[in-house]
């Protein structure tokens, strides 16, 4: 497969995963605006900006009277959802995912493209005031569903060639990185309430699984274990790394054999960290930081091995 196509599909996977993740966070946050105490709303925004490593448009978020926090919420939601100049807003991620799909249309199925394009045409016209007055949470819910549907159409229609693998690897690395940032944001805060842990589970699509596997009673250590090590949970780190490593193993080695080999080993190492390190480690925050760095390195290695390799000494087929 053409390197540029593979790279386009990889990025498509990443951007759409990012858009969906953000939609899920914003859905919970806008739901909270209805009935949660102002302090919780304030912490919610801080956590989202913290996890994204981004400054809010007004510089910092102040915990002030009711009305201020709610008015700020409008600005913050706009910034995270529709801000064109913000590369990680829902709008930008969606547009970039769709732009990659547009350029690689011949590499994906027709159904995937149509799904994504229709969703894009819907979102493209919207602005914050269109969603804010009625039900912002339904906008986020619908957008999440659209990306899920896209993934479902991909699952049932896309040819399982390298393009599929690169798209999956992009999604999974992104998913793991976002998950790790959330977990870090959560573990670094002292004052987590039950509802914070439940939010975390909901953002990772894991609340139902948690209730089934454990109970409705929330224990932080169990939440962490589920999100990190449960092989049955689609959004767990364990599953993301296992599937990414398997997809990577199914791709022929890249022309830059050094980076390619290093990428394979690093993917394996990430799997080993969740399977064999996590259960016995006390300093889990450190371990999460380590995994986060590895994810970034894996991205660089993949780029060097498959997309951007030096052509001077690469093999001729």
């Amino acid at each position: 497969m053409l390197s540029r196509s593979a790279q386009g599909l990889y990025w498509m996977g990443r951007y759409l995963e990012r858009a969906e993740h953000l939609c899920r966070m914003l859905r919970l946050q806008t739901e909270a605006l209805v009935d949660r105490p102002v302090r919780e709303i304030y912490l919610g925004w801080s956590r989202i900006y913290g996890a994204m490593n981004r400054q809010p448009p007004m510089g910092s978020i102040e915990l002030d009277g009711d009305e201020y926090t709610l008015a700020d919420s409008y600005t913050l939601a706009d910034d995270l959802t529709f801000e064109r100049s913000h590369p990680n807003s829902v709008w930008s991620c969606f547009a970039l995912g769709r732009e990659n799909a547009r350029q690689m249309r011949h590499c994906i199925s027709a159904g995937m493209w149509t799904r994504l394009n229709l969703a894009y045409l819907r979102i493209q016209k919207l602005e914050i005031q269109d969603i804010w007055r009625t039900s912002p949470e339904s906008f986020y819910a619908e957008t999440s569903v659209e990306i899920d549907t896209f993934a479902g159409v991909a699952e049932s229609t896309m040819y399982r060639d390298e393009g599929w693998s690169f798209m999956q690897i992009g999604r999974l690395i992104e998913r793991a990185q976002l998950s790790i940032s959330l977990l870090l944001a959560q573990t670094s805060t002292e004052e987590n309430t039950d509802s914070d842990w439940i939010s975390l589970l909901r953002i990772r699509h894991a609340l139902e699984a948690y209730n089934r596997r454990y109970s409705v009673e929330v224990k932080p250590s169990q939440v962490l274990n589920l999100l990190v090590t449960d092989p049955l949970l689609p959004g767990s780190l364990c599953r993301s790394f296992d599937v990414a490593a398997a997809e990577l193993a199914s791709i022929a080695p890249g022309p830059d054999s050094r980076s390619s080999g290093a990428a394979h080993r690093l993917a394996g190492r990430l799997c080993a960290l969740v399977h064999y390190e996590w259960p016995d480690r006390q300093d889990r925050e450190d371990l999460l930081w380590q995994m986060s760095r590895h994810c970034r390195d894996l991205h660089d290695l993949l780029t060097a091995a498959y997309f951007d390799y030096p052509i001077e000494d690469s093999p001729v087929l």
């Binding site: 540029r4 791709i251 022929a252 093999p315 001729v316 087929l317």
Partner: peptide, 25 residues
């Protein structure tokens, strides 16, 4: 394959494209 100029190179009078497994004629 849908290629752009930057995906192709000419070497020894042959044209190649940059693929994920190496240069393909």
């Amino acid at each position: 394959e849908l290629v752009e100029g930057r995906d192709l190179i000419v070497n020894d009078g042959f044209v190649y494209m940059r693929t994920t497994t190496g240069l393909r004629r």
